[in-house]
Design a protein around this nucleic acid. Sequence first.
DNA 1: AACAAGACCTGCATGC
DNA 2: TGCATGCAGGTCTTGT
Length: 273
Amino acid sequence: MPELPEVETVRRGLERPLRGQRLTHVQQRRPDLRWPLPQNFARRLTGRRVVSIDRRAKFLLFRLDDGNVWMVHLGMSGRLYLGNGGRAPGPHDHVVVETESGAVLTFQDHRRFGMMDLVADDDLAGHRLLRDLGPEPLGNEFHASSLSERLAGRRTSIKAALLDQKTVAGLGNIYVSEALHRAGISPRRSAHTVAGRRAERLVPAIREVLEAAIAAGGSSLRDYVQASGELGYFQHAFLVYDREGAACGRCAAPVRRIVQGGRSTFFCGRCQR
DNA sequence: AACAAGACCTGCATGC
DNA sequence: TGCATGCAGGTCTTGT
């Protein structure tokens, strides 16, 4: 489900209802997601107060008043939403958390590619899932020279390199296609050739597409919803993703679909070089 | 070290 | 209708 804009939208939606709240009841309804949940997960979360909710790449980081951080990754199909209206949890509602204000936060994930961990704040940067991540694309450390440095010597496609979270953290299959289209760069181009002018175009293209998507509340394709249950609407602004055969928004040539690394890539063969 | 392919898991659309 | 196939927003693990 989620790339950076969707995760950020969820984060923003949770901040007001959850920040400062004590978690009064935690129900863990199965032992594992992608991996086993940490030992005594529900007990360790129960009674804690949420100090802040942050994001790193596609991870949500709930900082708690005992110095620990509750890490949540939504995988492909994970949802984190507020208010289940008192309904009984469904078969894919794996974690249900209630707060002192009566809010109910449900983690639902039918494919179970999602993950959770509970880790001391001091150890967070060294966590195996976070330590190798590249820069945040909306942060100050992401610029043309840092990007081309990370692409130097890499013979794989620029598409594959941008999906690699070590290059830049937070892009996924949708926004890589969209960003490369905005930058006029072919997804098949060898990664190390994206330097100089091309890198200067790619960095703002990535920033702009992510910012526009966040402003639209993310993209709702199949099952993504915001924490509030509302749908994002950035999918209506896609210029290439899932638009095979449709006219490229810039030059009207038909959008093409190819498979790279086993995953669909959409691009315009005329205006992306 | 870098890379491609395989693995994980469920649900949905399509075609026969 | 049933069944097989392929596809889906991610990323870790394995083998070359």
